[in-house]
Amino acid sequence: MEKQKKPVTKDIKHEYSIKGMDFVAAGEASSNIKHTLQLIGFAPAVIRRAAIAAYEAEMNIVIHAWEGVLITSISPERIEIIAADTGPGIPDIDQAMKEGYSTAPDHIREMGFGAGMGLPNIRNVSDEFTLDSSLGRGTTLTVVIYPTA
């Protein structure tokens, strides 16, 4: 007979699709994620970190990729945000991680994007940070925040 498994609290999972260059909807996924975290009742400082990570990841898909998804998986002990896109990919990840490095074109910079701060910001607010990219295919960013850390 199989041993009875311990009851596990289920993670709350959500998926939001993001379209490249859609500046009208841009930010909505992040704002939904923030509301979910507020409803669950995380501390404001934790919510701020997750909101920053989600927003910068969302905007990177909008600006640099073709389309993608934000997938969140949330439990009281762990907030995971995966941003996966199909897009051009990142040729040199170390370079992309440098503060100030950006390939954003002028018309995007005029809007105040392209400071080359998004990825460094994400790394600064996350406890675990993984960036994988494949040229001509796309990019996957995984961020984990431990609310109690």
Partner: peptide
């Protein structure tokens, strides 16, 4: 600031 990521951070 006029840079969005700067404000965010």
């Amino acid at each position: 600031s006029d840079l969005l990521s700067d404000v965010m951070a």
